[in-house]
Computed example of a mutant assay.
Amino acid sequence: MPHRDNLLLASLSPSDLAALQPHLKLGRFEQDQVLFEAGDTIDATYFPTSAVVSIVVTLSSGQVVEAAMVGRDGVVGASAALDGRMALSRGVIQLSGEAMVCSLAGLRGAAMQSQPLLSLLIRHEQTLYSQAQQSTACMAAHHVNARLCRWLLRSRDLSQSDTLLFTQEFLAEMLGVHRTSVTVVAHTLQEAGIIKYTRGKIQITNLEGLRDAACECYETVKSQYQNLLRD
């Protein structure tokens, strides 16, 4: 069943999953597809199974910076089921793939009938908030080289692939840096044998080297999601 590919759904009790099942449908989403904009009323939630979603903040200048990344270990839009129906940021597909889409009414109804499910959603939103805080600290304290490595590792974990289809422009936008900075770092990583980069595609060739070059934020965020699913 597709829902088993989302770790959050897979962690649910049989009764909670049965309550959600009639409201779940599988959807296909393409890179750069916008799920919602800041200020929109959210009417659906998304449990990625292979797609990866970026939660981004758009500044008045038009600059876009990623605050959090959600994939098969989480859910997008769950705050709407907790009565926060207005989106505070943009949700955009980072990597094409599939997600289980749940109606807002279905998720909210199930959560109101199940304390364990409600607790899981609240803890997930806390984890997402913590990831956004970590991203803020990372941007302020860590070099773009380490930040890019951390970002690639997180994308790899969620997509379960060593091949990532990203342009340098997209990477620069997500990291909040100039494209030239990404060009320099990508060249350095390629020279070190950690990645191979061609236009629009990054191949991770030395996973351990990438982990060694990443900042501590990668392990911190990974640990937070593991704790969420373990509790």
Rank of each mutant, 00 (worst) to 15 (best):
135 S>T: 13
57 V>A: 14
24 L>G: 05
22 P>I: 02
214 A>M: 00
130 S>K: 15
49 T>Q: 01
29 F>D: 06
130 S>Y: 14
53 V>E: 05
59 L>I: 06
186 A>T: 12
219 E>H: 13
15 S>L: 10
144 V>S: 02
2 P>N: 11
197 Y>E: 07
137 A>S: 05
61 S>M: 07
126 Q>F: 12
39 G>Y: 06
213 A>E: 07
38 A>S: 11
136 T>D: 11
172 A>I: 09
189 L>C: 00
189 L>I: 05
68 A>Q: 02
149 C>K: 08
95 L>A: 12
60 S>W: 06
81 A>E: 04
92 V>E: 05
22 P>V: 05
38 A>N: 05
154 R>L: 12
16 D>R: 03
73 D>M: 13
11 S>Y: 02
117 L>W: 07
7 L>K: 06
84 G>A: 15
51 A>K: 03
169 E>T: 15
130 S>F: 15
69 M>W: 01
170 F>C: 13
157 D>Q: 05
218 Y>S: 07
134 Q>I: 14
165 L>W: 08
92 V>L: 04
216 E>K: 01
193 G>V: 07
158 L>K: 01
113 Q>E: 08
51 A>E: 03
222 K>F: 10
109 G>M: 09
76 V>C: 00
43 D>P: 00
27 G>V: 13
163 T>G: 11
32 D>Y: 06
152 L>K: 05
46 Y>L: 08
199 R>W: 10
202 I>D: 01
7 L>D: 07
210 L>Y: 11
11 S>C: 03
38 A>D: 01
99 A>I: 12
124 H>L: 15
107 L>S: 01
32 D>C: 02
217 C>W: 13
68 A>P: 02
228 L>D: 07
7 L>V: 01
186 A>L: 13
126 Q>I: 15
81 A>C: 04
202 I>N: 02
166 F>H: 15
203 Q>K: 09
228 L>W: 07
61 S>V: 05
209 G>W: 04
93 I>M: 11
60 S>D: 15
71 G>I: 00
218 Y>M: 09
130 S>H: 15
82 L>S: 00
108 R>W: 08
76 V>I: 06
41 T>K: 14
217 C>D: 15
79 S>Y: 04
97 G>E: 05
204 I>T: 05
198 T>F: 01
77 G>R: 09
193 G>I: 07
104 L>E: 00
82 L>D: 06
36 F>G: 06
185 V>R: 03
5 D>K: 11
23 H>Q: 14
81 A>Q: 04
80 A>Y: 13
187 H>A: 15
76 V>H: 00
101 V>D: 00
20 L>W: 01
5 D>F: 09
150 R>A: 14
50 S>D: 03
31 Q>M: 03
11 S>T: 01
137 A>N: 08
149 C>T: 03
59 L>D: 12
156 R>V: 01
92 V>R: 03
122 I>N: 08
156 R>S: 10
4 R>E: 14
55 I>Q: 11
222 K>D: 13
148 L>D: 11
19 A>P: 04
173 E>W: 04
171 L>I: 04
10 A>Q: 04
230 R>P: 01
